[in-house]
Design a binder for these strands. Structure first.
Lengths: 111, 111
DNA sequence: CATTCATATGCGCTATTACTCATATGTGTA
DNA sequence: TACACATATGAGTAATAGCGCATATGAATG
């Protein structure tokens, strides 16, 4: 049992989270929710995506444990499972923007 | 121009990074590099992946600006473009592990 | 210059995924 | 009960990604 097998579970879960977050529209949905819960119809309005598509992405986000939905009358309110996700997203954005110029000017090639 | 279009570029870049990180083997490659540069052969040995596959993933990681490669004789040494990526990965791992139990016991369903 | 070693690349295959359309489920209300 | 609204789900499709095999490139060494 080396370092790889030791982190196997963590790697597995991490890659799943990354896969879920690799869809631009899912990121937009997460950002559109912000700190407060919102019904699906609000998310549809904010993102401009189709109802079917939003529903599809919400399920993916839900199954990944990134959002949760609670029924309230005929509406279902969705919110971030952990609002810390917003900080993570903005932190990563800052990180990428900070190194963007360096990446653009540097070669980083192979041969 | 609303909030969505304002963040459009950031969302685009973020989703690309997440997509690159959504591959378990790529995460393993990144972790196997750690803080120091290593030739491809070392990465192959550490991960147990095929040479073709490692080369393929390294290109993806390189084009995403996550690693850089420098030739040294007949070897090409790869290293993290920014070692802060390691902290990010471990930070996210901790974040997921911390909420894992809650996610497992809670419903987080839709209807 | 021929050979060997390290690494990259093109091709074909298969599996996955995001999307739309149509339809189903569930809730509130007359 | 019937109807309207909010949301979920299933089928079908087109695009993409990861993998292995074979091969190419490029550096070192005799």
């Amino acid at each position: 049992m080396n370092a790889n097998t030791y982190h196997a579970e963590a790697v597995k879960d991490l890659s799943k989270v990354f896969k879920v977050l690799s869809e631009p529209n899912r990121i937009r949905i997460l950002m559109s929710m912000g700190l407060e819960c919102a019904p699906v119809s609000a998310i549809i309005a904010r993102t401009g995506l189709s109802q079917t598509n939003v529903s599809f992405h919400l399920r993916v986000l839900r199954e990944a444990g990134l959002v949760k939905g609670e029924r309230n009358g005929s509406f279902i309110f969705y919110c971030l499972y952990d609002t810390k996700l917003l900080e993570i997203l903005s932190g990563l954005t800052d990180w990428r923007e900070a190194s963007q110029k360096a990446r653009e000017s540097e070669y980083t090639q192979s041969a």
